[in-house]
Nucleic acid binder design. Structure first.
Lengths: 209, 209
DNA sequence: AACATTCTTGGACCGAGTCCAACAATTGCA
DNA sequence: TGCAATTGTTGGACTCGGTCCAAGAATGTT
């Protein structure tokens, strides 16, 4: 990725990023997310508070490192299905792409954002960070579908509502999966059960329309 | 509601609440939401900053007064359809209840939260307030549906994902409607087109399952 | 009049996030 | 070897949303 050939001008970055993530993980376990301040995280990582903002734009970003990494594959997964011609095929492509992404999440490591989601509502930062990620995915999916939908009176509305509905269902699946405890298997089946009805519903609309 | 018979003990409230709303409305028009501080709102309303928090728990509450008022009717609208027996009927009841609520939103007054929704992402408070409201509705709808669903392996997952999907589609409809400009008619048709596919998709699952 | 109750207010405080100006560490070039 | 240019790090000051508390103001009750 950002694998600069070892010669780069300027002062090299410290090994701070991973240390910040680890320090945060420890502190979140000890004190919960809301109970730890950026100052504490930075200090435990042996770094100044300002350096923290050099690596993360917001405290809440720490909760989403794993999720963001997994979701970064969505554009590529969608591009693989770029051949999809009509709107119904586009819906199916989105369905497949989401399932493919979910394969990256095993029962072992559950992202912070999901485990601490029960504390959502107390802080508000969590909600904010969650929704901003959600909306980014929405525009991605929406664009993919609209590019494969003939223009029509309701095309924009249906495209956007499908994007939001299918991603909301996916989020629901992730939440239930995370709360399922140790017995949870892979995320895939949860996701499948959650989004299939949405997808088939919108496929029917496109087939009829 | 809080219609105390005129005699009540203690110092009476000033007429502050409406003045705060009006002051905020003016300032949001002049300076946008993010550009105005609570201090300014309070001062224009002729009230101290602390008094503001006596009426609103957060600055973002000001964006949702109309929406909250409209959405307050959802429990009642659902209760009207409480006779619904099975899960498929419950889905239809939710669909009807949402449409009934939407009748309260005409083309004239569009809530602040929707008009300023394009600025979402800059502040974060907006996202947080939006998601917390969304999740409140989710648990409402989820409970309504689950109470009418026979227990089963996937019942919880399907119930929650339906709730989130249908409300996400509804939110999409509200967003598109708000952005439609002066030519927008009533919200109802938008909502109808957005949530119908979701509802029919989940109805099919329940009919088959 | 004294009192309980409720609203209002000022002030102090916290934490997230921004901005800026200094400083440190490195590469590249004379 | 020394001198830029570049980039990361740091401290400090600042803004703003939100919380907390203690004092005061305005009412009803006894």
């Amino acid at each position: 990725m950002t694998n600069h050939p070892p010669s780069r001008v300027g002062r090299p970055r410290g090994s701070s990023r991973m240390m910040l993530e680890e320090a945060a993980a420890e502190l979140f376990l000890e004190q919960t997310y809301a109970g730890t301040t950026i100052e504490q995280i930075a200090r435990r990582a042996g770094v100044s508070r300002n350096t923290f903002f050099n690596y993360f734009a917001a405290k809440s970003d720490l909760l989403w490192v794993e999720v963001d990494a997994g979701l970064a594959g969505l554009p590529a997964a969608l591009a693989e299905c770029a051949g999809a011609a009509g709107p119904a095929e586009a819906v199916s492509a989105v369905e497949r792409a989401l399932l493919q992404i979910s394969a990256g999440f095993g029962p072992g490591h559950v992202p912070w954002a999901l485990t601490q989601s029960e504390l959502m509502g107390t802080t508000g930062e969590l909600e904010a960070s969650a929704l901003s990620r959600f909306m980014a995915l929405v525009t991605l999916v929406e664009r993919f579908v609209l590019a494969r939908t003939p223009a029509g009176a309701e095309a924009a509305l249906v495209g956007r509502s499908f994007a939001m509905a299918v991603l909301a269902a996916a989020a629901a699946a992730a939440g239930v999966w995370a709360r399922a405890g140790v017995s949870r298997g892979p995320l895939g089946p949860y996701l499948q059960a959650a989004i299939a009805p949405v997808c088939s519903g919108y496929r029917a609309v496109h087939a009829a329309g």
